[in-house]
Amino acid sequence: MNLLVLPGVYAPQDDTALLAEALAEEPLAPGARVLDVGTGSGALALAAARRGARVTAVDVSRRAVATVRLNARLAGLRVRAVHGDLFAPVSAETFDLVLANPPYVPAPPTGREPRGAARAWDAGGDGRLVLDRICRDAPPLLRPGGALLLVHSALSDAGRTVGALRAAGLRTAVTEHRWVAFGPVMRARQSWLRDRGLLTDEDDKEELVVIRAERQR
């Protein structure tokens, strides 16, 4: 899929591709309601729209929202793109499928919230600044039989994510995983991550996982 990506907007990468593969395997009825939260360029939102879903895309970046609208228009697809912080714009709605590729890279403390483009990857000292919010706030948005597909790094504790979603009553498992070479952000933080015990001296790849959590009917 050819996409335009405005400066400062998260461009599709390995995590996007892995989540897109999980989306392709997901049964999705025509007219199903899909939420793509932290949409970035809108790659996943457009993939769902191509399958006939009614898609809402949310991002905290106004440039990302503009990017999604532009890409949807160029592709001739209908996607409702809204600006807001995570689930705030859709808190009164429910969905058949929620897609999430949130920030998950552990980041050295700065004493302030991530800003600018870094909002797409910086996620606090343990990488769970947004992940824990998703585990808490996504389950009520799922319709009976609805599912959450969430991608993040194993460095951010996939077991904790699985446990939190199971505790919320969802049937949860890791369904996809892939080892990928470090990108620029990870390479820049290797020393700090080693000091934290999250990497060894030999590590030069990162494991990405997709977690699927389904609300029972």
Rank of each mutant, 00 (worst) to 15 (best):
R54K: 10
A48M: 04
T94V: 07
T39N: 08
L77N: 09
D157G: 04
R80T: 12
R160Q: 15
A53W: 06
A158F: 00
T67N: 14
P103Y: 13
R143W: 03
L99V: 00
A81L: 00
L44M: 12
S91Y: 11
W121E: 02
H83W: 15
L141A: 09
L46I: 07
A92H: 05
V98W: 02
R171P: 04
T39G: 09
R78H: 10
S156A: 15
R62E: 15
L86P: 03
V60F: 01
V82P: 00
R136S: 10
R143E: 03
A88T: 04
T94D: 15
A45S: 11
A75V: 02
A167I: 07
S156M: 10
T161Y: 08
L131S: 07
V65H: 08
F87I: 00
A154K: 05
L170D: 07
P139E: 15
L44A: 13
I134V: 15
V79D: 14
V130H: 07
E93D: 14
W121D: 04
L141W: 02
G42F: 10
G76W: 11
R80H: 15
G84R: 14
P144S: 04
A138P: 07
R80C: 12
N71L: 09
S61H: 11
G42T: 12
S156E: 09
V55E: 07
R171N: 11
A88Y: 00
R51D: 11
L142T: 02
T56N: 13
G40I: 01
H152S: 05
T56M: 11
A107R: 11
P102N: 02
T161P: 01
D59A: 13
L74H: 14
G52D: 04
G76L: 12
A75R: 10
R80M: 11
T110K: 15
A147P: 00
R133K: 06
Y104A: 07
D137W: 13
V82H: 07
A53E: 01
T161F: 10
V58W: 06
L165G: 07
P139F: 14
A81D: 05
G169A: 08
R51H: 08
P106H: 06
V90L: 00
R128T: 01
V130E: 10
G163D: 14
G125L: 12
P144N: 08
V162M: 01
D36C: 10
T67C: 15
G111W: 09
L97R: 09
P114V: 02
V37M: 03
R143D: 00
V55T: 06
F87R: 08
D157L: 05
I134W: 12
V105N: 02
H83Y: 07
F95Q: 10
V55M: 08
A147N: 09
P102I: 02
A167M: 07
D85K: 04
L129H: 05
G38C: 03
V79Q: 13
L150I: 06
L155P: 01
G125T: 06
A49R: 12
V60L: 14
G76A: 13
R78Q: 13
A75W: 11
L129G: 06
H152Q: 12
L170S: 06
L129T: 00
S156R: 11
R133P: 02
